[in-house]
Amino acid sequence: MALALELDQVSRSYGAVVAVDSVSLDVEGGEFVTLLGPSGSGKTTTLRLIGGFERPNGGAISIAGRRVDHLPPYKRNTATIFQSGALFPHKTVAENIAYGLRMHAMNPSLIRERVGEALGIVQMGGFEERYPSQLSGGQKQRVALARSLALRPSLLLFDEPLSALDLSLRLQLRADIKRLHDELQFTAIYVTHDQSEAMAMSSRVAIMNCGRIEQVAPPQQIYNEPANEFVYSFIGESCCLPVRIDDGAARDQQGRPVDIRLAEPPSSGAWRLYLRPSRIRIGNEAHGCANTARGRVRFTEFLGDFNRYHLVAGGLEFFCDRAGERQYQIGEEVEAGWDTGDMKVFAA
């Protein structure tokens, strides 16, 4: 069976600015693939290339085995859910959903059936006659979703659909979209800069940076086995320790020795050690860890579920999180420890 979507060396530049730099991506039917990256990483442009709102400068885009990169949006079997919803303000909810079906010359009774069905799917039954201005932000996005789903496109494109909503609504709609994906098994490309959204919803995540895809993998693999330094530093919180290693002993960038003991120190040279603050243990808990660092508490932050201790060791700064009461005071010397598996080492 043909792939639902195939990007082959797709590029798009605006003058000297390369927005998308020979991106290749294969998506199978039923997959939920998220393009995740900082702003300006080319994720939205990639989505717009797939939807047909931009034309690529090079490469090939195929949807369900058919080359589409020369086709305008109205000849592609894709449907986009925009950030703002982009509902037609002068049409009712029902008319909004019927619009795409009418454009495809479907007969009126079938259209009515599909509109009702789509509204049911997004739990918006009874809102048929409302105008978009009478809906809340979350309701608008549900209608936008219904409008796209009603077409039964081979590809659903999500352009940061939740970023304009407040947190609780965002979490709720996120769960709804995931549930709908499980039920309906549509193929989706989802653009976001919110990594928890990407982690929670996707079957695979594509991390984008500077117009390129850095890594495509399931969320667990992205988190646990980042392909490179960018992916590691972008996903989750991390502390970065830039160190020099001389014969197994660590120094900071100014060359002062720091009290960091590594079980398997890398060869001599400049390195960056990345640690997950949630996996660093501190004080008594650090005893017996394969890797340790001694530092002084610079300041602490109370973050609700845990306290965050900012430590400084020579010229190095890092932080670790610990649940419960605040235990260490500013200026106090403490030991931090972590397992070798919780550390990533990248050449500087």
Binding site: G51, G52, F53, P72, P73, Y74, T78, A79, T80, F82, Q83, S84, A86, L87, F88, P89, Y99, G100, M103, H104, R147, S148, L151
Partner: peptide
């Protein structure tokens, strides 16, 4: 006019004149 709304129309199969 919000450009996205026009794009949404194209996206749903509306040709430019329609």
């Amino acid at each position: 006019v919000d450009r996205r709304i026009i794009e949404a129309s194209y996206d749903l199969g509306g040709r430019p004149v329609r």
